[in-house]
């Protein structure tokens, strides 16, 4: 048994850069997953059957197959049909699409949970069906969905590690670069795990504050 964590210090800049990319990817993919999740949920519930059926199928496929497989499909498939996208964006979009399906599932449930009395009240005040949804139903549903969507974002943070497989620079790939020079896998992967854990705790903390704030609004 021989561990030498002192070597990790000389690579601290590389690891911190990797961590910043990980956070950046989490924010980008997280935003895509939330916005697209809302779009998918509202289309499946309010849209015509022609639009909603394929959406339901897509949710099912995204939730029933591994993220890595979906990333590979996007990675190899896009270039096959002639779309040349940098690996970084392929990864961000793949991750965003995957979690959009999970978020859509949550938004669907919270949209259905909004009291039907809200629709009746707004309609009797003269708001159209669409306006009622936009100004009253969807904002309330987004608020109720927040804790679970936040949880998904924390899971998404951890899944950004999978992007290293596509050669996208983030924490794991930078750790691997350091390992290829030092041959110290345990020290670097352990440090990477520690950094993920700190970000994870920070996100949980922010989520609990946001949860308290939304309780006040309601």
């Amino acid at each position: 048994m021989s561990f030498d964590f002192s070597v990790v210090w000389s690579y601290s800049q590389l690891l911190l850069t990797g961590l910043l990319w990980t956070i950046f990817i989490t924010v980008l993919a997280g935003s895509i997953s939330i916005l697209l999740g809302i779009v998918i949920a509202t289309t499946t519930l309010y849209g015509s059957r022609i639009a909603s059926l394929p959406m339901r199928g897509i949710i099912f496929l995204f939730m029933g197959t591994p993220l890595l497989l979906q990333l590979y499909l996007l990675y190899y498939g896009l270039s096959q049909v002639g779309i040349m996208l940098p690996a970084f964006w392929t990864g961000v979009i793949g991750l965003g699409l995957h979690y959009a399906a999970y978020n859509a599932d949550i938004f669907q449930a919270s949209l259905k949970a909004v009291d039907p009395g809200q629709m009746e009240a707004a309609r009797s005040l003269g708001f159209s069906r669409g306006a009622t949804r936009r100004y009253f139903i969807i904002p309330q549903a987004v608020l109720t969905a927040l804790p679970q969507v936040g949880n998904n974002s924390i899971i998404l943070l951890k899944d950004t590690a999978v992007l290293s497989v596509l050669g996208i620079s983030e924490l794991v790939l930078d750790a691997q670069r350091a390992i290829s020079e030092t041959y110290r896998p345990f020290e670097f992967y352990f440090t990477a795990a520690l950094l993920y854990y700190v970000v994870n705790l920070a996100m949980e903390f922010m989520l609990s504050i946001a949860g308290r704030k939304t309780e006040e609004i309601r």
Binding site: K158, S164, Y189, N200
Partner: peptide, 9 residues
């Protein structure tokens, strides 16, 4: 709180 992939590695 840590990625499965990193645990695996």
């Amino acid at each position: 709180g840590t990625p499965l992939l990193v645990q695996l590695f």
